[in-house]
Design a protein around this nucleic acid. Structure first.
Lengths: 229, 229
DNA sequence: GGGAATATTCCC
DNA sequence: GGGAATATTCCC
């Protein structure tokens, strides 16, 4: 009875796929923004850092929804050249898309964030936005996009005071870089641990169910056999 | 074979439950806080203003949930005197209550807000909080509760660290200590991860075996039944 | 318990 | 489009 086995296996696969937790899922790998501590120095090439959650989510949203459906039902997509994106249907975008990625469903809050990160609306007729560093296939440069600051705070706090003495500063800097990396790795490890533990919990639950299954199945067949004798 | 089928289905449900919670539910009617514009003048009696959304929501939550159920199932309530409130079950409070009133389900974020508004935890054993101006039946003085301000201090944040001389060395030392701790934690986390992954592997193997078992058992019994007929 | 960053809201 | 307040998160 292979059909049965298939059923079991599909059950097995389904439950180990961990497709539950829509909300949790999206947070994974989006929470670790260590932007705050990394200071860019004028004249240096832009330091790569972990992109802001907002940018990552917006990028992923485009990756996930851009190819969907026919043009007529498209809610949001990259523009033809991949140099920007278009919200084709603000209403559906607000109602359906935003709450899947953010903690709200307000188009204006989304726009506010775009402005914060320096995106430009490039047409008065369409909701099309561009940012030099936000393009299709270029996830790796998202980290170069920064929030517009109201403060002149370019240096991290602990470097500002001693920005003249370069010896001390540069070794401090290295130290701090390492420190940052460590903390980031640490955080990710903890998140991973949680995920692994959740996987284990799922596994255990499934095992219990399988065992129950097995035992009940045995009982019922025992009875059948007995009746047939 | 309905029993079996039921079991399979219940197993399946386990994985499809995906009960994403309603983040958007409660934005209604709490958004209009005009606090920003009203300046308090020193020496004047406290000016009444529109309470912060956080305070209103917390107050309403207490009004709505405090009377519910018997004591044994209470999640959160005013304390006996109405001078503060108690979160009896932080787990349920986080999972069920918070997302109904706020855009998150994190107990620590709720606590952070309480601290911001000057609430005090008044017992190390219970999650009981008080604020002089936050009492049962006194919705009208909520407007007098203000956020603790992070002083628009004389120094900008980035100058603060240099306002004393001792910290150059001591902060270095602290840094190193912290560094050591981080590295240690990191190492342990990696070890833990390995162990967890091994556990998962074991689980998977066991699951496979159970499945095999089940299918072979079924095959053989099918044959038995057939022979007996 | 709180500093500080990002997110969301509100208002001009 | 952006200033500024509150909310939420992250870290110490």
């Amino acid at each position: 009875m292979n059909l049965f086995r298939q059923q079991l296996e599909s059950t097995f696969k389904l439950s180990s796929m961990a497709d539950n937790y829509n909300v949790l899922e999206l947070n994974i790998g989006l929470g670790n923004n260590n932007n705050s501590k990394v200071g860019g120095h004028a004249g240096q090439s832009p330091r790569q850092r972990c992109p802001a959650p907002f940018l990552l989510k917006t990028y992923e949203l485009l990756e996930e929804l851009s190819e969907n459906e026919k043009d007529s039902t498209k809610i949001v997509s990259w523009n033809a050249e991949g140099t920007g994106f278009v919200v084709w249907s603000p209403a559906e975008f607000s109602e359906l898309t935003l709450p899947r990625y953010f903690k709200h469903n307000n188009f204006s809050s989304f726009i506010r964030q775009l402005n914060t990160y320096g995106f430009k609306k490039i047409s008065s007729k369409k909701w099309e936005f561009k940012h030099e560093k936000f393009q299709r296939g270029c996830r790796h440069i998202l980290g170069e996009i920064t929030r517009k600051k109201c403060e002149p705070s370019v240096f991290p706090a602990y470097l500002k005071s001693s920005s003249e003495e370069n010896n001390a500063t540069s070794s401090m800097e290295e130290n701090n870089d390492h420190h940052q990396l460590l903390m980031e790795e640490n955080k990710n490890l903890k998140k991973e641990r949680l995920e692994l533990q959740m996987q284990i919990d799922e596994c255990k639950t499934l095992e219990m169910k399988l065992l129950e299954c097995l035992s009940q199945f045995m009982d019922s067949h025992q009875n059948k056999v007995r009746r047939l004798c």
